[in-house]
Every structure is written in C-alpha cells, then in structure tokens.
C-alpha cells in the first residue's frame, strides 16, 4: 500500500481552535430552535445537560489526566445532546450526559474514541431508560435554516478537514434515495427534495458524523466509512421504517473506524490546542 498522504488540515487562521466555531454554531442553533422554532427547550434541562457534561469532563481532567482543552469537546457534546435528545426526566438527561462523556475515556482504541460521544449517550439513554426520544421533524425544512446550517458546517469542516466525510455521506444517501424514490417508486422530485431538506438530517451530516476523533484518519477510509453509514441508514429507514436511522447507523458503524485505521494508515487528527502542546 502506498504511504498515506498527510491529511491536510487547513490552517489559514491557525490561532483559533476549530472547536470554538463549533461551540458558537451549535449554541446558535440551540437558541434558534428555542426562540424561533419554539422548541420545548426548558432551561433546567439545558442546564442539567451542560452542567453534567462539564462536571464529568472536569472529573476526568483531574482524575484521568485528560487534556485541559477537552472541556471544549465536552461542551460540543453537551450542545449536541441539547439539540438532538429529548426526555421527560432530568435524570435521563443527566444519564445521557454522563454516558456521553465517560465513553470518551472508557471506550478508546489506539487513542481514539470508539463511539461518537453524543451518539452513544443518546442511544444508551434511548435503550436503557425508555424515557428519551429524538424529534427528527423538529427543524422542519426551512430553506433559510438549511442554508445557514450548511454554510456554517462547511466552514467548520473545511477547517478540520472533514468536509469529505459529509460530502461522501450526502452524495451516497442522495443517490440511493434518488434511485428508490424517484426512479423506482416514481415519486416526483419534490418528495426527494423534501426528504433531504430535513434540518435534523443536515445537522447530522455536518455536525455529528464529522467528529475528527471518531472518523478514520485516511481520507479515502473516511469516504468509504461515510458511504457505509449512508447505506446502512438508507436500509434502516427504507425497510425497517426507523425515522432516526442515521443516528443508529452511526452508532453501529463508528466502532469500525479502528478497522479502517488499521487498513489505511494516516496522520492522526489533533485539535489545535492539543497540537500546540503535544506536537505530532
């Protein structure tokens, strides 16, 4: 196998860690959903998720010697949970939060997370508590929101070099859906466009599957990995009628990242602050 290329991490503004952008974007989406789309985002629920995630992370920084800048990652995880996960009970949210953050430290292979933290927290809470749910329709299909989400997501992913993952996922899913919905079933294109204009779907594609700590290191491995998620999500949504199929597909495929990394070796991603302190 050819020696893998070093992954190109754009660094036009190298002084700013990309996670700051992600925190601002996700925080803005949460405010947008709460105040414009009138979600039931109750302040106590948000505070419980943010608080639990940060306290858990702090415990691991102190006890587990985690990197100090990792508080940003836990804040991103917490915002992801606030955006995607709903529950009646505050304990369920706290449970999902602890599970998410803990997973980063307990489920590791060769220095990488075995699961996407927010994804594992959501799936774990869904399966164990029976008290949580995901509302895939909560974003609707407003073109403005989609544009904002897509544009901001693209800027972020360009900076961390994961735009390829999102594009591979979106293209693969679009091709599969086009073949079934339009070519086979015979629905008109607006049905397909409506499926793809779901805010939840776009948020997932740009902000969840692209976590550099859970995606394969090699660019080609990432593309294949993203296509696998798209194929599995398509099968689950089409034949098993699972409306939150991408979330489940990510949960099932993410552990395979370790296998992809073994097959296609490449430079390990590190956040800017980690790189500054621990040069590769």
């Amino acid at each position: 196998m050819e020696a893998p290329k070093q992954s190109t991490i754009p660094s036009r503004i190298p002084v700013i860690d990309a996670r700051y952008f992600q925190i601002i974007y996700l925080g803005s989406f949460l405010l947008l959903g709460t105040f414009i789309l009138n979600w039931d985002t109750l302040l106590p629920k948000v505070m419980v998720v943010l608080g639990t995630c940060m306290v858990t992370q702090l415990a691991f920084i102190k006890v587990g010697k985690a990197h100090e800048s990792s508080w940003m990652s836990s804040l991103i995880t917490a915002l992801g949970l606030c955006l995607l996960f709903r529950a009646n009970d505050l304990n369920t949210l706290a449970f999902a939060s602890v599970l998410s953050i803990s997973s980063k430290f307990f489920f590791r292979i060769r220095g990488k997370h075995l699961f996407n933290p927010a994804n594992l927290g959501i799936i774990g809470a869904l399966l164990i508590t029976q008290d949580g749910w995901i509302s895939p329709g909560q974003w609707g299909s407003s073109v403005i929101f989609l544009f904002i989400m897509g544009a901001l997501g693209s800027i972020l992913l360009f900076r961390v070099g994961r735009l390829d993952t999102t594009m591979a996922f979106l293209i693969a899913f679009f091709v599969l859906e086009y073949c079934r919905t339009v070519l086979y079933l015979g629905w008109s294109m607006d049905v397909l466009i409506h499926k793809f204009s779901s805010g939840s779907f776009i948020l997932f594609a740009f902000f969840m599957i692209t976590d550099p700590k859970t995606t394969p290191d090699h660019p080609w491995a990432r593309k294949i990995w993203a296509v696998s998620i798209a194929v599995l999500a398509f099968i689950m949504s089409t034949w098993a009628y699972i409306h939150t199929a991408p979330i489940w597909a990510l949960f099932l495929i993410t552990p395979l990242t370790a296998v992809f990394d073994l097959l296609w070796k490449s430079e390990r991603f590190r956040w800017l602050k980690e790189r500054n302190l621990n040069p590769i």
Partner: peptide, 13 residues
C-alpha cells in the same frame, strides 16, 4: 407511552 408527533414535518404547539 405518550405523545404522537410527526417525523417528517414540524409538530408545533
């Protein structure tokens, strides 16, 4: 279990 909501359109109060 609880409420029914729409998955491919927004359900708003």
């Amino acid at each position: 279990q609880g409420r029914v909501e729409c998955t491919n359109y927004r359900t708003v109060k």
